[in-house]
Simulated scan of single mutants.
Amino acid sequence: MKSIPLLGAGTYRLKDGAGYDSVKTSLEAGYRHIDTAQIYGNEEEVGQAIFDSPVPREEIFLTTKIWMDKYSKSTFAPSITESLEKLKTDYIDLLLIHWPLKDDEVEMEEYLPELKAVKDAGLVRHIGVSNFTNAQLEKAIDILGDGEIFTNQVEVHPYLQNHKVVDFCQANGVIVTGYMPFAYGDVLKDETIQAIAKDHDATPAQVVLAWMRQNEFVTIPSSTKKANIESNLESEKVTLSESDMERIAKLDRGHRLASPSFAPDWD
């Protein structure tokens, strides 16, 4: 079973033709990890781009996420069947619970077994969660057992290093996938990041992605620009020194951007 590439192409906010073009360009550039979600409204475009690509499906690691209104036993599996149809594939490499439910309208004890059931049925290769607190992740592990939760996808970037969640994930063998690595561009303007980039003859984005990689985080930046997509992939050639890593570690300031009204009480 193929492993997850640390650098993936995200598709958040990429609707219609933008989603298709971004995935097509990413695959052409050499990306083999594509991340989407039911709520992004672009699974059809993502699926079509993968279908149209000469890259064999088995070489691509494809992630999607189930939205909150599909967690009940009656809607869970049918929504995954619909996602598979839109994505033009017979399996998903990684399926995530997109957000924990704040009101417990559907209990974890109901929807997490449904998550495992679609994996057991062969529709999904790996299962995981997104935006789970440590307490929620601990409960999920209790329900599903050790080794079932592949990743917790959470906001991580130099301005929000999320140490409590990262430490808990790593202690429990759960991969950390950090989304919004550039904090909507905020960290790319940082003087420290820019200085390190200058030292390495690299871009600020490449420095951030190297920092993510050297912390062993999976990350999924999104872009519609060919130059940025290709440049981000070149971050794999950048190696930060221990001093660089220490300087970036000091930038943490709890700068959280993704915190909608339905978000959990963050760690």
Rank of each mutant, 00 (worst) to 15 (best):
R253Q: 13
I248N: 10
S53E: 00
I66P: 06
A29R: 01
S261R: 11
I34G: 04
K226G: 00
T177P: 09
D21T: 11
Y184K: 09
L137T: 09
T133P: 06
E85L: 09
E236F: 10
K15V: 05
G128I: 13
D199L: 07
G178E: 05
A117N: 07
E82Q: 11
V218H: 09
Y184E: 10
I143Q: 09
K198C: 11
M245F: 12
G10F: 00
D69M: 11
A49T: 01
T11C: 06
G145M: 01
G17N: 15
H98Y: 12
A140P: 08
F262G: 13
M68Y: 09
R213Q: 08
E85F: 07
R253K: 14
T63S: 13
H126C: 14
D120V: 05
E107A: 15
V124D: 15
W266R: 06
R213C: 02
D69S: 13
K88V: 11
Y179W: 11
Q161I: 05
K102R: 15
T64M: 08
E44W: 07
D201G: 04
W99E: 03
S261L: 11
Y184I: 04
L96M: 12
E58W: 09
E114G: 00
E58N: 15
G254W: 10
K225S: 03
D252P: 03
I220G: 02
N134L: 01
P158Y: 09
D120A: 09
E44C: 10
K198Y: 06
T75A: 14
I127R: 12
L257K: 08
E45D: 14
F217H: 06
L112D: 02
K139Y: 07
F51S: 07
S261A: 15
I229C: 00
I149G: 09
A263Q: 08
A205P: 02
L123P: 07
R125L: 14
V238N: 05
T219Q: 00
S235K: 01
L87M: 14
I60M: 04
P78V: 02
P181A: 03
R256F: 09
K226H: 01
D103R: 07
Q161R: 11
P181Y: 00
A121C: 13
S72Y: 08
Y71T: 05
V166C: 15
N42F: 06
V166A: 14
P54V: 05
M108L: 13
G17I: 13
L209T: 02
H33G: 10
E191K: 02
K24T: 07
A140R: 00
Q194S: 03
Q194T: 04
Y159D: 03
A263H: 08
F132P: 02
G19I: 06
A183L: 01
E191I: 00
Y40G: 07
V166F: 12
D21E: 12
H200Y: 14
V156M: 11
